[in-house]
Design a protein around this nucleic acid. Structure first.
Lengths: 142, 142
DNA sequence: TCGCTATGATATATAACATAACAATGTCGA
DNA sequence: TCGACATTGTTATGTTATATATCATAGCGA
């Protein structure tokens, strides 16, 4: 097919991300979870006691969009909201949630291994530094 | 904030893609174009005579979703559809479309330079090989 | 105490993607 | 040659992840 845009880093980055997300979906759809849901479960598992807004800030999800997200996970009995003060609430995994988190983590580990396997071995050490640099805030480089 | 998922290549890839798309948007919104529209204009400019379905196949956009996309660009006088045979139609840039394509290309070139500028110089040669590898085999099937 | 801000929530809009069906039109093999 | 099949463009519709604006309430700082 020979895509004439294939020499544009931004374009290829986007295509790589879409392709990778598709592969991730194949892994975690077995748990009937979406990528955002899986990321929230992993985050809460790693940092119990987070507030809903804090979690959104870390994952780059707006406060308003966190509501249906956590509501779904709560409805499935994976996450519970503990009233912290009057207005904010801690997120925590239920027992079922912790089980799910372990399974998701295993799936993700497999997925991440598959990602790295696509990259020629000599380039693998450079993957994270490059991706992190592309993510990062403005770079104050010389 | 210290994102505990920041060591997962797939997650960082997605965040990098989102951040980069946001920066691209800042560039091309000056032309009142969305990223998909810009990519289609660039593609047609580079490969005049494409069919609507062919363009969709290259860009990874379903045939059904190409309809409103090309319709918008046609309504703005940037793209025209030439009846090729009875059922398929060539896409081509109008004169205004060619002007737009040149402007978009300039914006994209600037954007791509900014992308590479984020990466430490020593790693830059590895960016495209890595991203291309992550994009995967869907691409190199002829 | 009073005003500002943060939180969770609601309603709503949009972009980008998906699927299913359809008519019209090509193509190809028997 | 012709009939079965595949392709194209299209319409309708649904889903997911975004975004914004607004609100009541609750906590904080001056």
């Amino acid at each position: 097919m020979d895509d004439p845009l294939a020499d544009l880093p931004g374009y290829v980055l986007r295509r790589a991300s879409i392709a990778t997300m598709g592969r991730l979906h194949r892994h975690i759809s077995a748990h009937d979870l979406r990528a955002t849901e899986a990321s929230l479960i992993l985050l809460i598992g790693e940092r119990a006691g987070l507030t809903q807004s804090e979690a959104g800030r870390i994952l780059g999800i707006k406060r308003a969009n966190m509501v249906p997200l956590t509501a779904r996970l709560e409805a499935r009995g994976l996450v519970e909201r503990l009233q912290l003060t009057g207005r904010s609430q801690e997120l925590a995994l239920t027992t079922a949630g912790k089980l799910m988190q372990a399974e998701v983590r295993a799936s993700v580990v497999r997925h991440e291994a598959e990602i790295m396997a696509r990259v020629p071995e000599a380039l693998r050490p450079h993957v994270m530094p490059i991706l992190t640099a592309l993510w990062g805030p403005e770079r104050d480089e010389r």
